[in-house]
Design a protein around this nucleic acid. Structure first.
Length: 588
RNA sequence: GCUGCUGUGGCUCAGUCGGUAGAGCGUCACAUUGGUAAUGUGGAGGUCACCAGUUCGAUUCUGGUCAGCAGCUCCA
């Protein structure tokens, strides 16, 4: 595939850049289509993105309907069919400004003002449409073969909410129609595994307007799964020397003033409530409570590391537009812990946390994730605790440990917590943007703010270092991820119902009931389908709707032989064996 | 929170160019006692999200509120 670069050369594109150039060219062609249909349009930025492209455009107050978007799409098709050549040229700064001014492109003019004095300013043109751009682009409009406008949203000029809101029109573009089709199929599949949909189908959780927005409630099946996760991680932590505590969901505003959270996050907390002479807030996180537990009595270096863990209920006043099922809610439960350590224990404790994260991922069969070393933005003195020396020390320490552990990671600036750098482990859900599942944060800041100390070997008082960490992150979000990864077809150890007993007819209800009781007595999660329905019907529902890993078919043969026939959800195969053998299978 | 779209029985969706609604699934009853992905018949179930306005009359039009969805922003 050929492209034209901004020095005017036409060259074959490297394969890894093809998609990007296709998408960027799609943005230009869309802009041309918009300009034809909406001549008042002024263009801001129009880049290619990970999946497609967008263009931010100022329509002078005009609102676009779905029909308008369809018309823009149709006009784009027309432009590709016209097969306009795409040309490029460079202009001196003054001429560039004049050209953009003449065309009323105020945002482009402002953009030129932001460029270095000696920057080259190049333009790309197809037909009567001219865009300031560094390219490269496809050489003819016809080379754009497969694209689709996917929607619109608001976006601020230069991403700053002080600036004017523009209309962002989003699209996707691919090499060919097959790829576009594949993308559409993928979208449909993603929708089918959305945890909100499956959660409703499987009766895992619900929301209710009267209870409130962003406050999901776990139903019996969902809470069963939730408890399995809770017990799983608490048992792992117990074996690693964690001590679990339970602390209240409210705290005084002063508690959060001390930690600094009030200053940084009060807008994202539920507003304070006045009780007698004190102000309380619903807690958004648990660090301060755990800090105060540490401070409960004097500590010696012999007590460290001290690992305080809690499955903690938290409340955050998340903006309404960001709420998403149990993935992001206003109430959630963190698998939180704070490790109070001496400086020379940092390395081994972080290593143990990383081991625990990857160990857990193995158990849940999570393989598609990426690690990020989240650092401060040194220029942003407001967002981050202002102590460069502390930050340099903490960032270097964490980086060093990750390198020693040979963990693959990328560094991201401006992603740290206000009190310290962190290792984040991110995953991509079926629907929507990537999010953090696990985190491990190194904190030299809060222990000092809370004036925590321990008596060291030499008898002097020193400040401990704190490692904040969450393995399953929030249990709620982790469950959302599991639902989408498994499409609700949980492995037997996680399934809310492990075995559903299905009598072939009511004649065999007694033995079926006995089988169910045997399973329940042995501690398994079993249910009996007592309804007067045919076996095929019961199987269909147990398999397709409830997604139960094993169905026990109980009829005349089983009743007479006093054994069971189980049907495997994933293979569809039936096997007859003794109840003891079946339970052995469930224990695996 | 911002921009856009959406809101009809538990679920998925028709429909009403303004004259108070329909299907399938589910649910309930009865019949059927059936061996691996939907047995048959019948019944119940809706203030068409909520509140105003326009109108003789609003589920339908207008405004507001609430909620959901997509994206933006945010995520200690």
């Amino acid at each position: 595939m050929k492209a034209i670069y901004n020095n005017g050369e036409v060259m074959t594109l490297p394969a890894e850049e093809e998609t990007h150039v296709i998408r960027h060219t799609a943005a230009h062609i869309m802009a041309q289509a918009i300009l034809r249909l909406h001549p008042q349009a002024k263009f801001a930025y129009g880049p290619a993105t990970e999946r497609g492209f967008y263009y931010d455009v100022d329509l002078d107050g005009e609102k676009l309907s779905d029909e308008d978007l369809a018309a823009i799409q149709a006009e784009m098709v027309k432009i590709t069919k016209e097969n306009l050549p795409i040309k490029t040229y460079e202009l001196p700064r003054a001429d560039a400004i004049k050209l953009m001014e003449d065309r009323g492109e105020v945002y482009k003019v402002e953009h030129i003002g932001d460029l270095d004095e000696d920057a080259r300013i190049t333009f790309y043109q197809q037909g009567d449409y001219i865009d300031m751009c560094v390219g490269p682009h496809l050489t003819y409009t016809k080379a754009l073969k497969a694209f689709k406008i996917t929607g619109q949203s608001g976006a601020y000029w230069k991403n700053d909410s002080e600036n004017k809101m523009l209309t962002r029109i989003n699209g996707v573009a691919f090499h060919n129609g097959e790829e576009l089709k594949a993308w559409e199929v993928e979208q449909e599949e993603a929708k089918a595994r959305d945890h909100r949909k499956i959660g409703r189908e499987m009766q895992l959780f619900m929301t209710d307007d009267l209870v409130g927005r962003g406050l999901p409630m776990f139903l019996p099946k969902g809470y069963t799964l939730w408890q399995i996760l809770e017990n799983y991680i608490k048992e792992k932590e117990r074996r690693l020397g964690y001590l679990h505590v339970m602390t209240p969901c409210v705290g005084t505003v002063d508690l959060y003033r001390t930690s600094g959270h009030w200053e940084h996050y009060k807008d994202n907390m539920f507003p304070p409530m006045q009780v007698e002479d004190e102000e309380y807030v619903l807690r958004p996180m648990n660090c301060p409570h755990h800090m105060r537990i540490y401070a409960n009595h004097p500590r010696s270096y012999r007590n460290l590391p001290l690992r305080i863990g809690e499955i903690a209920h938290d409340f955050r006043y998340e903006a309404s537009g960001t709420l998403k099922g149990i993935e992001r809610a206003r109430h959630f439960c963190q698998n939180d812990a704070h490790l109070f350590v001496t400086p020379d224990q940092i390395k081994s404790e972080i290593a143990a946390v990383c081991d625990l994260i990857f160990d857990a991922y193995k158990d849940f069969d999570i393989t598609d994730f990426r690690c990020i070393l989240s650092l401060r933005d040194p220029a942003d003195k407001k967002k981050y605790h202002n102590d460069d020396e502390m930050w340099d020390h903490a960032e270097n320490a964490l980086r060093e440990v990750l390198n020693e552990l040979k963990i693959n990671y990328t560094e991201e600036i401006g992603e740290a917590a206000f009190y310290g750098p962190k290792l984040d482990v991110n995953v991509k859900p079926a629907v929507g943007a990537e999010y953090t599942l696990s985190t491990c944060q190194l904190d030299f800041c809060l222990p000092a703010k809370f004036e925590l100390t321990y008596v060291d070997q030499d008898g002097t008082e020193k400040t401990p270092v704190v490692i904040h960490r969450a393995i399953l992150g929030s249990l709620d979000r982790f469950m959302a991820y599991l639902i989408e990864e498994t499409k609700g077809r949980f492995p037997a150890w996680l399934a809310p119902v492990q075995a559903k007993v299905l009598p072939v007819s009511e004649k065999y209800m007694e033995y079926a009931s006995e089988c169910c009781e045997t399973l329940l007595d042995a501690g398994f999660r079993a249910e009996l389908d007592e309804r007067n329905e045919k076996i095929g019907y019961k199987i269909r529902e147990a398999q397709q709707v409830e997604r139960v890993p094993y169905m026990l078919i109980i009829g005349q043969k089983e009743t007479e032989a006093r054994n069971v026939t189980y049907r495997d959800r994933d293979t569809g195969e039936s096997t007859t064996c003794s109840m003891e053998e079946f339970m052995q299978l469930l224990r695996k």
